[in-house]
């Protein structure tokens, strides 16, 4: 039974990586938010699975916290945000999508190689998934770099937090509860502040294109 659940954790890890790639290749903001919600759900599922196998009760709490925050509250805030900003559809990427995907493969190879020696030091049951967590982290990072608009960048930031949480769960059975609560609040406050920020950017430049921020003076 435990063996099957360990395999299930590996499967969830693969799904998280798949969703990270799906987000990387997605052109529409609305679908991006749905994918982010799904990724959050998968992280919750894998955390519950780890908690069940290892009998670590605090992992149940952090799974519940993640569920409330990343599957309900933050997607709701994002939906409200894009409705009010009226940017439901288009995203422009700075590099074309097949190239992004190819760079993505390179990142995955890099992080798998990076994780192999680290995973040997760990004794946790889900140590193999550390490479996937690092890969998701780098992919979300690349999503932030390659997107020109502000909303996808925020989603990239949030999915990076998902990857970090997953890495913590798989490598060390999660962080102490205080740290986790702190991070959760940070992310929530971050989303609120970035939302206000986006309104300000649009007020100022009439668009959400970040490249306008490079100008220091009015010309």
């Amino acid at each position: 039974m435990d063996n099957l659940i360990t395999q299930l954790i590996n499967l969830f890890a693969a799904v998280i990586l798949m969703l990270a790639f799906a987000m990387l290749s997605q052109r529409r903001i609305l679908t991006l938010i749905h994918l982010f919600t799904l990724q959050g759900l998968t992280v919750v599922a894998s955390t519950v699975a780890v908690a069940y196998v290892t009998h670590q009760h605090h992992l149940y709490y952090s799974a519940a916290l993640t569920l409330a925050l990343k599957c309900f509250l933050i997607p709701y805030l994002l939906h409200r945000l894009i409705n009010r900003l009226n940017v439901r559809w288009d995203i422009e990427t700075l590099i074309n999508i097949p190239t992004i995907m190819l760079i993505g493969i390179v990142l995955v190879v890099f992080s798998f190689n990076l994780a192999l020696p680290i995973a040997k030091l760990s004794a946790s049951i889900a140590r193999g998934t550390l490479g996937i967590a690092i890969a998701c982290f780098l992919l979300s990072f690349m999503m932030m770099i390659t997107r020109a608009k502000a909303v996808p960048q925020v989603i990239g930031f949030l999915s990076m937090e998902n990857a970090l949480f997953f890495a913590a769960t798989s490598a060390t059975y999660g962080m102490p509860m205080v740290v986790e609560l702190g991070i959760a609040l940070d992310v929530l406050v971050g989303v609120l502040i970035l939302g206000v920020f986006m309104f300000q950017i649009r007020e100022q430049f009439d668009s959400l294109d970040i490249s306008h921020l490079e100008k220091l003076k009015e010309d």
Binding site: N10, A13, A14, L17, M18, F21, S25, I97, P98, M101, L102, G104, I105, V108, V109, F112, A115, L116, G128, T129, G131, I132
Partner: peptide, 23 residues
Amino acid sequence: VPEFLATAFLMAVIGMLTHFLLG
């Protein structure tokens, strides 16, 4: 279509890589 099939190729390659990582 090339983008669609590039995604397919990428998924398949990642499948192989995952096999090596997760054993």
